[in-house]
Each structure stands twice: as structure tokens, then as C-alpha cells.
Design a protein around this nucleic acid. Structure first.
Length: 896
DNA sequence: GGGGGGACGTA
DNA sequence: CGTACGTCCCCCCA
């Protein structure tokens, strides 16, 4: 909690990136109804959004060229000469781009006689002196000279959507010289784009060889006489040229700039100004994408009226102190709304708004806050005893992590509350909840000054929006608390989801350590395997096709090769793995075999590449656990999804080797529940035979097999075992005789017989499954062991397909949901024990029935004991909860 | 660039 | 005609 990430500065060469964007996006597709071209702006802002999301900068600056006349052209008039005239369609876009940046409060700068690159170089130097991490986004290769341990250049590969990271290693790998020698290399080879000729016959290879050999450009020029052959002659003939090149491509790091890096901190966006400029540009989706980066977006085009509330807004300063305001708020919970980025590891806050009863609102702009107010606010946010209400506690925790080490004392989260009340809604954004429950919009009322550049009014409208949010959170709490209390579900939020959110926030913040070298190795290997498989597939059919295109595959399979048709889909016939295997059995055509292995290996390659992209500078991956998405109560994992890392195939498991124990820790531990869903089934159904099976402690499927097939447990054949295993697993999904027959590849009648025999032996299970559906039809919802509900209106639908689907959902929801309840309890208890016993070991991941833990040295035995104890003891069922534990240097080894 | 569809990874 | 997810690619449209 005390670990403060270093500030991260993102600086962008505005001209070069906008120009790249201009050529990357089709000009004729981005024209406003007024005829203005917008493709460069669109591409640039889109790139900016990606960079903000992925790189999580705390500071941003954009540099532009001031004009074509610079100190370089003074010295060398031909510099950048011979270029085509700037296209008309581009010229008008730079002012528009600047308008967008201004609305986002992103500073931009140009300086007479200097190029954007010199500004970037100066900023980078200043930032390094201030101990910042620096990202330089530029399409000019001269920027490579800035690269060092703390400065990375992002250079566009194609268009502006894909940027390559140039670290010192990457520069060296690509050019064979260290970043500080890149300008030496460029001086020798020349730069066509800048109209700078190099030494004839000297390309990057030769130049790099010389630089390595001589150590510096000066040494090469001094030792030019020793270089033999035609290139030696050429070099000697161009000594002055090379010297001048080197002078020209040296970026200045000491330009006197009006804006310093410390002024580049991310600031609140001006929503009104953004709306205005985006209206001009006619960007709909981009605007929404951008607003999603803000804590709670407002609703557009809503018919809901903005309420006419008299809000008593205080801006905290030396006269209006945080302490006084909090004193006046009394003992009631205070709502907290944070403006900032709420992502794990890179979160930051700009503004904090507090709301209390009586529509009192206090607004703290963190960068302007006095020391006394900062201390007061920080202490209050971190005070477990000071009651608070928020929307999305986990996001708020991340945003406030650097300011106050997160947030404590949260008594209610309206997002979690709304999720528990109606778990199948799509979104629980504060704006949506305000409409749904309060029938109000959170958009601020329009001010008379709209459209004018008036700082006072902008502030007012921002304050009003924050104030509306803060007061909405308090009102929503009252409503949702009542709703949950009436159905006896208050404990679900207070004792389960809220404490869990804290645990999850820590897990996301800590992240899991990654062996990137191992991943890169796998990436190369999978890439090669994919190419081999693809070539063999092409050979088998005598032509090239896009193996990733189901449409083209259908042409190959059903037209060219005339194979039998597979299962129908909405758009044709399926080419999924099951169907392809089927076809292979029938036709033995080698194309199918190679296609299947191509699919396998490209999927793995993609997984590896996605993981590599998610690794943060601490060499860890910080996923986000979604706590309000799955209708059953499970968690999900995004950005990246770490709950679907391959485990079934040999090659896939190699990916798990890249999830390693981090520095300062000794081992990874996995702990998972065995057959938790079947155990819950046994408990909920009360089926004596099934309960006996688990109490006996022998292999479940053998036991069930012996009962179903009427043999002794040692006479159960593997075929019998796999049949009842499929049946048991399928039970919790509402499986049908048809589905079972497909899975087992037996006739429907044989599947039906198996189900009948199964249900005859385990009558309690059969009875329970029928009861669940009937009860849900009466109540309109199902419930888990902890009373988590899922509403199923389709159970009474006239449409048979909808109804039967709802019935399967009704079977599954209490089982999957109760399993989710149990592991959530376990996580809270494990985390509590680890902290109470002052252990450094920590939870990293949850994969539905499995926990991944990073154990500190000397703590392994104790941690394993805690895991077994708290997971097994999470809930008292009529069958034991069995837990198996494994350990290893990586996730693969720790698995079992 | 956005959205639908298909495919596929996990529990 | 087996539940719950997230993410990738292709393709089509704008």
C-alpha cells in the first residue's frame, strides 16, 4: 500500500502522428456533413485513447512544429526539402486536433525555429531529471537517440494503431547499435525523408559494423583512412557531409520552453467543450469511448430531466477546510466520487467530491489542495471508522491508491448493490442507475455561457456534475439498501461483496509476475508451427486461402473438395473443431488435419501475444476482475482475461510456465476445490447416495458408475466411468438425452437409458432438479445458498425454446452461483488470515474454483494450512469440501 | 472504425 | 438440443 508508482509522462509528436493517421485512414470516409476532413484527427485521438488506456500516463504533452523555417534549415537549406506539398485535406485538421486536446486539458506546445522533436527531447531530459518514466510517441526516427532505461519510444509500425516499443534493447536489436549511437548511424546512412544524403554504399549494416568496431562516429571519421575498398573511398569523400548530418540530427535537450513537464499532469476533462468539438467533428463512437475513460459518464440524448436541486457546494481551500466540512457532516456516511482513472496499477485521481445529507457537497481538486487539506482528506479516506458510500469501490480504490493508499470504511457500494438486486442487467454505471432508480439525469443543467470559453463557467459545470453524482450516490444507497434489506440480502453486500472488493483490489494491484522471455520464445515457436501448418494445408488443396476465414474454408470444404455438409449456422455450415474432426474421420483428407493444427497453434500464439501486450513495466500482469458482470455471481476477468489460460493441451500448458513467482517470493501455490459443483448438488438435493459417495471419500465417478451399472467399484470400466462422469457434469448444465448422446457419441436411446438408470439410483438429484425449476417458476427467480437471486421471467414464456433455455438456466444458477458464493467467502477469509498473521504471502488470482497464491519464503507450510482450513471451512455442507493444493516455481508446476 | 458472427480458451 | 464468461479474427458496412 505504501508503494507509489513513478509518474509516467507520455509525450507525442503531434504533426508526425497526425500525418501518419492522415494516410492510414481513408480521407473520403471521414468527412463531416459540412465537408471538413477529419481522418487525421480521428486516427490521432483514437491512438491517444489507446495510449491512455494501455500506458496509463499520469502526465501528457503534445509537441507541434512551429513552421517550416527552423535553425536546421538556416544551416542547411535543403533540410526536409523536396517534399510534396502538404495535402489540402490535412492542413485544416491541425487546429481541430488542438481543439480536442484543449477540451481534454492536454497541454500542447510549439516553438519558433524549433521542431517538435526538440521539444520532446527537452521534455524527456527534464522528466528524467524529475524521476519520471517517459514514453515518446513519434514517427521520426531521430527520436531513437532519446531512448534509455527510463525513456521508451513508441514508433508507428503501420498506420497509428500499432506502435512498436523501442527500449534500448529493441533499438539495438533492430539497428545493431545502442540508442545513443543511432544518430551516428543515421548520419552515415542518411535519411531520405529529411532529404539528407548519406555515404553512398553505406547502409545500416555497414554503419553499425563501423560503429561497433570504432566505438564512435568521431573515431570512424578519424580512422577513415584505414577503411579499405570502395566504401572507404566514399566515406573519405563525404566526411564533411557526415559531420553536418550528425549536427543536424542531434536533438536539443535544453530548449527554453513555456511549459515544463510538471505542468503536464492529467487534469479533469471539460465535458462541455468535448461535446462541442465532437459535435463539430461528428464523432459519435469515439466520443463515447473517450467518456468511458471517465469515472461516470453522463447520459446523452436522454429524456430524463436534470433535477432542480439546490446543492450547497464547497470548494476546499484554506478558508473552507476539509476538516470543517467533515465535522459538519456528522456521523452519517459520506459519499465519495472520484474523477480520474480507475484501472489497476495505473490509477490516479484528479478530483474528489464528497456528498453528505442536506445536499451538501465538497469538492477537492487534488493538485491545488493545501497541505493541511491534503492530510485531512487522506487520513479520512484511509480511516476505517469514517463511514463512506461509493459507486464502484474497487475502481475508487485504484484511483485513490497513490493519493491515500486506496479507500477504507466503505459501508455501501451502489454498483454492487444494484448488481445484487438485478444481476442480469448489462451495465450499472452511475448515470444509468440514476435514471433507473432516481429518474434523473446526471448531466449538469446548461449554463448561459455554454459555448464560450469561460473558465469560471466550466468550473461551475464540472462542480455541478460532481455534486450531482455525489448526491445521487447517497440517494441510491438509501433505495438499494432498503430493497436488499427487504429480501434479506444485506449481508450479501456487507459481508461478502464489499469485503471481497477490497481483496480483489489488492490482487489486481499486485498482479502476477511474468517471464516475458519465456513468452517471447513461445511466440516464436507458435509462429513457426503456424506457418508450417498453413503451408501444409495450402499444399493439400493446391492453393492459398485465408485459414482464419470460415467463409473461405466453406468454399474449400464444400465446393472444391465436395465434402459432406456439416451442421448449419446462421451464415452457412460450421467449420468448428468438432465438425472438422468428424469430416477427417469420414474423408481422411490431410487438409483437415493441418487446418486443425493451424487453428490450435494460432490460438495459442494469439494468447501469448495478448499476454505480452498486457505486461506492465513491473514485469507483471494486472487483470481486472469484474464483480458485477456474471449473472450467476461468478467473477470474470478482463484486460487480459486470466481465467482462460490454456491448461488442457501439452502446448497450452507451456504458457502457464510463464506465470512465475515474483521477486522476493518463494513459490506459487494453487489451491482448488475438487468437484465443488457435484458436492453442492449433493448438498442441495440431499440425495443420500450421492452424499454417501462423498463421505466415503472414494473416486466419485467410480462410485457413481458402480451404482448406475450395478457392479462393484473395482469392476467399473473406463468406459463406464467416462459415461457417468459426462452425465454428472452435464447435470448441472441441464443436459438433455440428445446433448448427452452427442457428447458420448452414442445413440439418443442409449443416452436416455443412461439418464434413466442414473436418476433411478440418484432419485434425490432428479427430484431436486425438478423442484428447482418448479419453485423458480412460482417465485420468478432462483436462489443460491447465500440467497443470491437470479430472475428468470422466461420460465413462463409461451415460446418453447426460450422456456426450455430458462429451465436449464434455472438448474444451473443455484449450483454455479453457490460455488461462487463459497469461494468468495474463502477468499475473504484467506486474505484476512494472511493479514492478521502478518504474512507477506498474497492472493493473486481466482479461477472460479481455484486460487493462485504467491508465497513468501518460510511461509509455505503455514499458507497451505490456511488455504486448506479456510477453503474447506468456508461453508458447512452435508458433504465435506475437499481442497487440493500444489506448489511450484510457476503456475504449471504448481498445478496438479 | 464498429458490429455481428464464428471459433475457442477456461471453469 | 449443456451453464457461465472474454477475446480474437474475419467480413460487411459505413
Amino acid at each position: 500500500m505504501n508503494e507509489f508508482a513513478r509518474p509516467r509522462l507520455l509525450i507525442i509528436d503531434g504533426h508526425s502522428m497526425a500525418f501518419r493517421a492522415f494516410f492510414a485512414l481513408p480521407a473520403d470516409k471521414f468527412v463531416t456533413s459540412g465537408g471538413a476532413h477529419t481522418n487525421a484527427v480521428h486516427g490521432f485521438i483514437n491512438m491517444l485513447v489507446s495510449l491512455i488506456t494501455q500506458e496509463k500516463p499520469t502526465h501528457i504533452g503534445v509537441a507541434f512544429d512551429a513552421g517550416s523555417h527552423t535553425f536546421r534549415t538556416d544551416e542547411y537549406p535543403e533540410y526536409k526539402g523536396g517534399r510534396d506539398a502538404t495535402p489540402e485535406e490535412f492542413k485544416g485538421q491541425v487546429p481541430l486536433l488542438k481543439d480536442v486536446l484543449a477540451s481534454m486539458n492536454i497541454k500542447f506546445l510549439d516553438k519558433d525555429m524549433f521542431e517538435a522533436d526538440d521539444i520532446l527531447a527537452t521534455w524527456a531530459a527534464e522528466a528524467t531529471a524529475n524521476d519520471m518514466e517517459v514514453l515518446v510517441c513519434s514517427g521520426d526516427r531521430d527520436a531513437f537517440q532519446l531512448v534509455n532505461e527510463h525513456v521508451t519510444v513508441l514508433y508507428p509500425v503501420k498506420g497509428v494503431s500499432e506502435l512498436k516499443r523501442y527500449t534500448p534493447e529493441a533499438v539495438e536489436e533492430k539497428y545493431g547499435v545502442r540508442p545513443e549511437n543511432y544518430p551516428d548511424l543515421a548520419a552515415l546512412t542518411g535519411e531520405t525523408a529529411d532529404n539528407i544524403p548519406g555515404v553512398p554504399g553505406v547502409g545500416p549494416k555497414t554503419a553499425a559494423k563501423w560503429i561497433t568496431q570504432f566505438g564512435s562516429l568521431e573515431a570512424i571519421l578519424d580512422g577513415a583512412d584505414t577503411i579499405k575498398g570502395k566504401v572507404g573511398d566514399n566515406l573519405r569523400a563525404h566526411l564533411d557531409q557526415v559531420r553536418r548530418n550528425r549536427q543536424i540530427n542531434r536533438l536539443l535537450t535544453d530548449v527554453d520552453l513555456a511549459i515544463g513537464v510538471l505542468d503536464l499532469g492529467m487534469a479533469p476533462w471539460d465535458r462541455e467543450a468535448m461535446n462541442e468539438i465532437f459535435d463539430v467533428l461528428e464523432f459519435r463512437t469515439l466520443r463515447e469511448r473517450l467518456f468511458k475513460l471517465m469515472p461516470a459518464g453522463e447520459v446523452e440524448g436522454s429524456a430524463v430531466q436534470t433535477p432542480d436541486i439546490e446543492l450547497d457546494v464547497t470548494i476546499f481551500d484554506s478558508e473552507h477546510t476539509v476538516l470543517d466540512w467533515l465535522d459538519a457532516a456528522g456521523p452519517d456516511p459520506v459519499s465519495v466520487v472520484v474523477e480520474g482513472t480507475q484501472t489497476p496499477y495505473g490509477g490516479s485521481a484528479w478530483t474528489v467530491a464528497l456528498g453528505s445529507t442536506g445536499d451538501r457537497v465538497g469538492v477537492a481538486r487534488l493538485d491545488e489542495l493545501s497541505d493541511a487539506n491534503t492530510v485531512a482528506l487522506r487520513d479520512w479516506l484511509a480511516n476505517q471508522q469514517a463511514p463512506k458510500v461509493v459507486h464502484n469501490v474497487k475502481g475508487v480504490w485504484h484511483a485513490l491508491n497513490r493519493f491515500s493508499g486506496g479507500i477504507r470504511g466503505v459501508r455501501f457500494d451502489v454498483e454492487l448493490g444494484a448488481y445484487l438486486a438485478h444481476p442480469d442487467q448489462r451495465t450499472y454505471g452511475l448515470d444509468v442507475l440514476a435514471e433507473r432508480y432516481l429518474f434523473t439525469s446526471l448531466a449538469p443543467t446548461e449554463t448561459s455561457g455554454q459555448g464560450e470559453f469561460d473558465l469560471g463557467l466550466e468550473d461551475d459545470s464540472q462542480n455541478q456534475r460532481l455534486a450531482l453524482q455525489a448526491s445521487a450516490v447517497l440517494k441510491l444507497e438509501a433505495l438499494l439498501r432498503t430493497e436488499l434489506r427487504e429480501r434479506n440480502s444485506l449481508s450479501l453486500i456487507e459481508d461478502l461483496e464489499l469485503p471481497l472488493a477490497d481483496v480483489l483490489a489488492s490482487m489486481e494491484h499486485d498482479g502476477v509476475a511474468i517471464d516475458t522471455q519465456h513468452l517471447r520464445g513461445l511466440e516464436g515457436f507458435f509462429a513457426q508451427e503456424a506457418e508450417t501448418a498453413a503451408n501444409e494445408a495450402y499444399e493439400a488443396i493446391g492453393r492459398k486461402v485465408n485459414l482464419g476465414s470460415p467463409k473461405q474454408l466453406q468454399e474449400v470444404l464444400f465446393d472444391q473438395l465436395d465434402m459432406p455438409k456439416t451442421r448449419k449456422t446462421k451464415t452457412g455450415y460450421t467449420t468448428d473443431a468438432a465438425a472438422l474432426s468428424d469430416l477427417f474421420e469420414k474423408t481422411q483428407h490431410p487438409f483437415l488435419k493441418h487446418l486443425l493444427s493451424y487453428r490450435d497453434v494460432t490460438k495459442l500464439k494469439q494468447t501469448v501475444e495478448t499476454l505480452l501486450k498486457s505486461v506492465t513495466p513491473d514485469d507483471r500482469i494486472h487483470t481486472t476482475f469484474q464483480q458485477t458482470v456474471a449473472a450467476t455471481g461468478r467473477l470474470s476477468s478482463t484486460d487480459p482475461n486470466l481465467q482462460n489460460i490454456p491448461v488442457r493441451s501439452e502446448m497450452g500448458r507451456r504458457i502457464r510456465e510463464a506465470f512465475i513467482v515474483g521477486e522476493g517470493y518463494e513459490t506459487l501455490i494453487t489451491a482448488d476445490y475438487s468437484q465443488i459443483e457435484m458436492r453442492i448438488m449433493a448438498h442441495l438435493s440431499g440425495d443420500d447416495s450421492l452424499i454417501a459417495a462423498f463421505k466415503a471419500g472414494e473416486d466419485l465417478h467410480n462410485y457413481v458408475g458402480s451404482r448406475v451399472f450395478n457392479v462393484s467399484t473395482d469392476e467399473v470400466t473406463p468406459e463406464m466411468r467416462s459415461k457417468v462422469k459426462a452425465m454428472s457434469y452435464g447435470l448441472a448444465y441441464g443436459l438433455t438425452d440428445f446433448g448427452l448422446s452427442k457428447q458420448l457419441k452414442v445413440s439418443v436411446s442409449e443416452a436416455r437409458t443412461l439418464m434413466e438408470d442414473y436418476f433411478e439410483r440418484f432419485g434425490g438429484v432428479s427430484r431436486y432438479l425438478h423442484e428447482v425449476v418448479e419453485q423458480a417458476r412460482v417465485d420468478g427467480y432462483t436462489e443460491t445458498i447465500l440467497g443470491r437471486r437470479r430472475y428468470l421471467p422466461d420460465l413462463t414464456s409461451d415460446n418453447r425454446q426460450r422456456r426450455e433455455n430458462a429451465e436449464r438456466v434455472a438448474l444451473n444458477a443455484p449450483i454455479q452461483g453457490s460455488a461462487a458464493d463459497i469461494i468468495k467467502i474463502a477468499m475473504i477469509r484467506v486474505d484476512k488470515r494472511l493479514r492478521e498473521e502478518n504474512l507477506e504471502s498474497r492472493l493473486l488470482l481466482q479461477i472460479h474454483d481455484e486460487l493462485l497464491i504467491e508465497a513468501a519464503s518460510g511461509e509455505i507450510e503455514e499458507v497451505e494450512a490456511i488455504l486448506r482450513e479456510e477453503m474447506s471451512g468456508a461453508m458447512e455442507l452435508s458433504v465435506p469440501l475437499s481442497v487440493s493444493v500444489g506448489r511450484g516455481r510457476n503456475w504449471h508446476e504448481a498445478g496438479h
